[in-house]
Design a protein around this nucleic acid. Sequence first.
DNA 1: TTACTTGTAATTATTATAGTTACAAGTAGA
DNA 2: TCTACTTGTAACTATAATAATTACAAGTAA
Lengths: 148, 148
Amino acid sequence: MPISSRFAVGIHILTLIEVEKDKVISSESLAKSVNTNPAVIRKIMGMLKKAGLINIQPGIAGAQLAKDFSKITLLDVYKAVNVVKDKELFAVHENPNPDCIVGKNIQHSIEQYFFSAQTALEKVLEDVTIEDVVKDITEKREGQWLNE
Amino acid sequence: MPISSRFAVGIHILTLIEVEKDKVISSESLAKSVNTNPAVIRKIMGMLKKAGLINIQPGIAGAQLAKDFSKITLLDVYKAVNVVKDKELFAVHENPNPDCIVGKNIQHSIEQYFFSAQTALEKVLEDVTIEDVVKDITEKREGQWLNE
DNA sequence: TTACTTGTAATTATTATAGTTACAAGTAGA
DNA sequence: TCTACTTGTAACTATAATAATTACAAGTAA
């Protein structure tokens, strides 16, 4: 089962806030761009706010980035939207038989490789910022804008 | 949601077959070591066989590795047990709005980073073999064995 | 024949996802 | 204050994967 699309949607939200920073962004307009329900967007935005990535206020439209877009990494978003728990990208079977040499020691062995793999993945995400994503997108501008 | 424990169980199965290679290994004895149901083990063993990692025959106990344990990587197991589809570790939201500059281009941008991250993860798995896992375990031997 | 095995289907409980609806509560302009 | 809008959140749904379980046909070998 893939890692939840909350991650991709979180990136989408932050990117759109930056690209459309001269506009007032509501959960409604974001939902149209993402093509989902405003409540889904609000839930994810709540997570992004909690992580200190955006500023939003009850009752007031107009989300803002809480940091410069060059300082927000994909790893920040990934952690904010809670798609993968710390050190738990890979499930390990519970309670292998401790009376078996393999059952007794396999978890400790496997986990170190699983952690290495997860860390390698997260390192890649840490090296990409919202600025990179914004550049990918704006370099392809074709004059199409939301709410115009 | 974590990557299925089929992966960890697959590694456990191959490791036990190697460590106990002088014994006759059945789905029953493997199930005891893993601490699950024999039918679960048989299903995963079917996947390992299909991937050319083990040799098993209907009606006959006694699984064998189909390759030397130094030639079986964790990536081979990961692919065999089908826990992550090719290029689909991360879900991407479907159908973003093509009338929005962000919606139109975000997927292409995001996917390249997602693929890089997934590749980095898989590269780590490719560099670990069942031999490495077996060594981790046998270096900790304390005289405990299954079926003795 | 028997006692065992594997292969596989069907069923279940559990859990996360993603969407939907509804509404209380906050905000701001008229 | 009234109105129109917004956010925050709860409740509910449908869907899908996981993992365990049971059952049994079919293969194997003494």
